[in-house]
Each structure stands twice: as C-alpha cells, then as structure tokens.
C-alpha cells in the first residue's frame, strides 16, 4: 500500500517534470538585461546575436547543461543572426539571485535590443524555442533563407 503510493508519487512527479520542463515562457515585461552586470562589455559587443541571443546559465554540477549546449550550437549553426553566451553560476551566487535562477540549465532569450523576451527552465522544448528564434529574426527583418 505505502509502496504503491510512493511509486505513484514518484511516477507522477516525473510526469509533471517532463511536461513542465523546458517550456518557453514568454516574458511580458521584456526587461532589458544590463549586460555589464553579467560582466559582458556593453556597446557594440560582438558576442550578441544580430536578432537574438541565448544566455545559457549553467554550473559545474549541471548534468544536462553540456547536452543543452550541444543542441543550441546545432540549432544556431543554421541561424547566424543568433548567438549563444554561456554564463557559469558555480561561483556567482549573486547573479543567480539577481536573475532569479533557481535551476540549471536556465536559458534567457534576448532580442536584438537585449530585452528579455522569454526564459526557459530546464532542458528546452526545442520546437518552441526554434519558432521563437525564427519569429525574432523575422521581427527584426533579418530573415534568413536556407
């Protein structure tokens, strides 16, 4: 009886996690991210994408982050107007607090004006992210033909 309840709870927890994990949550406020707080140079910083930038927050203790990074690099290989910036939070608790990052990987999607347009907790649902990135490219009228 107790074993059954525990097993059911564990399976349910896993199922909920699978559903919620990696949803692309669009941000209503479109807060502008101050790049200097991340230790990134401001102005015409070359690391940012023309239309979109992904900030991938990770730590040394994140098992899935390298896989997510590989998926992003693959995704961005055909989208030169978008760039990936990795931010290691292992020793930067201040940044984790500042940006309310409670799990790794967490991804921020920034548009061409460094506004936060979406955040993703956990390994992303790649289809939704791809659509958002392509929308940002069109919105910034840098559409890219393959």
């Amino acid at each position: 009886m107790v074993i059954g309840i525990v097993l059911t709870a564990a399976v349910l927890a896993g199922a909920v996690w699978l559903i919620l994990r990696g949803r692309v949550r669009q941000s209503g406020s479109a807060e502008q991210i101050d790049l200097s707080t991340l230790g990134l140079p401001t102005g015409s910083f070359r690391g940012l994408g023309e239309s979109a930038t992904l900030f991938l927050f990770s730590t040394d203790f994140c098992a899935t982050c390298p896989g997510v990074e590989r998926a992003y690099l693959e995704l961005l290989a055909t989208r030169p107007w978008a760039k990936l910036i990795k931010i290691d939070l292992t020793n930067r608790n201040d940044l984790a607090v500042r940006f309310h990052v409670l799990q790794t990987p967490t991804t921020f999607v920034l548009n061409s004006r460094s506004n936060l347009v979406a955040r993703i907790g956990g390994a992303p649902k790649l289809l939704a992210l791809t659509k958002l990135l392509d929308d940002l490219a069109v919105g910034a009228s840098h559409s890219y033909a393959i």
Partner: peptide, 25 residues
C-alpha cells in the same frame, strides 16, 4: 531518497544537480 533515485533512473532527472542553486542559496 527513493523519489530522487527513481527520477534519476526512470526519467534521467538528477534532482540534486538540478537544485544545486537552490541548495546553495
């Protein structure tokens, strides 16, 4: 501990890793 180990085995979710930032805070 069972729930954490089970999630790792069945769903490849490393709960301890996932929550590193929460635990540190």
């Amino acid at each position: 501990a069972f729930i954490a180990a089970f999630l790792n085995a069945a769903f490849n979710l490393c709960l301890g890793c996932q929550l590193y930032l929460v635990l540190r805070r």
